[in-house]
Design a binder for these strands. Sequence first.
DNA 1: ATGGCAGGAAGCTCCTGA
Length: 253
Amino acid sequence: MKIAAWNVNSLKVRLPQLLDWLGREKPDAVCLQETKVEDRNFPIQDIEGSGYRVVFSGQKTYNGVAILAREPLQAVEHGIGGFIDAQKRVITATVNDVRVICAYVPNGQSLDSDKYRYKLDWLKAFSTWLESESRNHAGVAVLGDFNIAPEDRDVYDPKAWEGQVLCSPAERAAFQELIALGFKDSFRLFDQPEKSYSWWDYRMNSFQRKMGLRIDHILLSASLAGKCRSSRIDFDMRKNERPSDHAPVIAEI
DNA sequence: ATGGCAGGAAGCTCCTGA
């Protein structure tokens, strides 16, 4: 089973690229973030026309998540259980007996921002809820934009980013708390190229200069990690015309 | 030290992203 995550930064703009990519990669399940589209405007027809079923949870302008799958999406759940959140950041469904959790973790903006406090509170609630999901499902995969670079090797200039949002000790500790629930960062199960990142700023020619961060991840519960055959970043998607600032991440389980 | 790029909503500019 091939699973993937991609922060599209507007599904409306990226739809042609998404449909192309689905035809080429043929993933079994795809988690999208930052769709930025209200549910009533979601492009259901285009996606179903490509042979995928889809569930989504969106809002105007910001956030918005969706899961696409070739097989039925069962036991769909919106948001984080037990956590009230006006922002549409999580959607979950069971596909082929795998509990697929699509997450768009808050950005946090800066350490002195209210948004940073919200990010840490959000991650705490997410961790608590994920623990119960793990108890209730044998195979769990968490895919999405975590807005956390877990280690210095996930950052092009660790000195410059030290202590900054996306790299701060509290955010990294929150990421490790998820790992401590029994998840593996699938990307690190395999040897990877140097300077493997999943996001590059649109400015300053960051992609060409390999100035990026690895903040999009696929976490796998122990049973899925044990049979994971590959995990990679589809860098080529960042070379497209009008690219998303994020590249898709893909794993085979 | 600062701004730079992109998308959206609104409106001829601002907010957010990371």
